[in-house]
Design a binder for these strands. Structure first.
Length: 126
RNA sequence: ACAGUUAAUCGGUCUAUCGCUGAGGGCCUCGGAAGAAAAACAUGCGUGUUUUAAUCCCGCUCUUUGAGGAAAGUCCGGGCAGCACAGAGCACCAUAGCGGUUAACGGCCGUCAGGCAGUAAUGUUUGGUCCCUGCUACAGAGACGAGGUCGCGUUCGGCAACCCCAAAAGGGAAAAACGGAAACGCGUUAGGUGAAACGAGCACACGAUGGGCUGCAAUUCCAAGUAAACCGGCGUUUGAGCGUUGCUCGCGUGAGUCGGAGGGUAGGAAGCGUUAGAUUAAUGAUAGACGCCCGGAAGGGUACAGAACCCGGCUUAUAGAUUAACUGUUUUU
């Protein structure tokens, strides 16, 4: 199911700080992606957790920030199955991902969707 | 009909497919976590094992709920929370004709007077007081001190005569008329200048009234973690520091306190129960249709803007639409 419930959102000040400190980064315009791979087994599975962020310094109005956040979240929700791939060794690969919007202009949904797909494929390959 | 003024209201709708927040119901142990109680067995007891399995959370499913007129700025007022609450003075901030309204307000309503804008409807702005302090351009002899004219008084000149004492030398006491490019005080008012000539006006001044301080990152609880020692300053009745919430006095308290270096924590819940109630933060995305506006058409546009403890106001941002009252111009009767 293409859902986006509460437990797949990244929260907690410590974990976010750890992600930005230790995570790998790359750019998929107009997004900057930071991610960290978590390996878990079938017995105690972890969830892939995602953080979506539009900085206040670029978008002064809360309406625009909310809108961009929703667009990014929606795009992730519809394409999160890219990350799920079968494994032979019984391990599960999960991720903590942060999407930072970094362009000064508001881009339409199509552009953001394309960028999210690109980013997720890149993460899944590694 | 057009243009305008004031007040009020609204500020997209529907369908499909996915998805989120909160609330409620149902389903499944044949998915996970926790596991009261009962029964059986083992046992001397403690206890252990097994079975049944209420209930709760996740899960699945159904129903339902979910941004604004400004949610914004955080500018006032109130609730709420914590600290404080003998007193006096100073400072600071706010208010401002009059009447009403309100839980309260610096808001709102009515109304009076003056200024400004407008043909008008109307809008906008000012409104305590001059005792103290300060300011009042240019012109003018002089601008809030006073000065000119005239009169009076005092000082000064006139001034040591007369008078008294004394043998004398000398000493004491002491006017008045009068005088003026003199000084001071009191009174007096003409003309000119000027917005204003002693009358005043104004605020930076003064008086009146009100204001304890800090704010939900308040505050409370749980969990987790703890640190004592060291170095330096000031102190222990010759009173440090703290409280009195900007300062001083006064009052209260009475042995620590301030700085350095170093170390620890920074999770959760309540606050926030609200016909929204989140906590890296829900209220959405995509597609289509319909409205409305611009345009001959193609086509384009559809604002400002997102709750974070809650109310009452103010201010600012807003595409456009509607209603009512009023004003002006033009036309027709």
């Amino acid at each position: 199911m293409k859902t986006f419930p509460k437990h797949s959102r990244l929260c907690g000040q410590e974990r976010i700080a750890a992600l930005y400190k230790n995570g790998k980064r790359f750019t998929a315009w107009p997004l900057r992606v930071t991610y960290q791979t978590l390996i878990s087994n079938e017995a105690s599975p972890l969830d892939t957790q995602v953080l979506v962020w539009a900085p206040k310094s670029l978008f002064k109005r809360a309406v625009k920030r909310n809108h961009l956040r929703r667009l990014m979240r929606e795009a992730y929700r519809l394409h999160q199955d890219i990350l799920i791939h079968p494994t032979d060794d019984g391990l599960r690969y999960n991720y903590m991902i942060a999407f930072n919007y970094m362009d000064k202009e508001e881009q339409p949904y199509a552009v953001i969707e394309k960028a999210i797909c690109k980013a997720l494929k890149k993460i899944a390959e590694k």
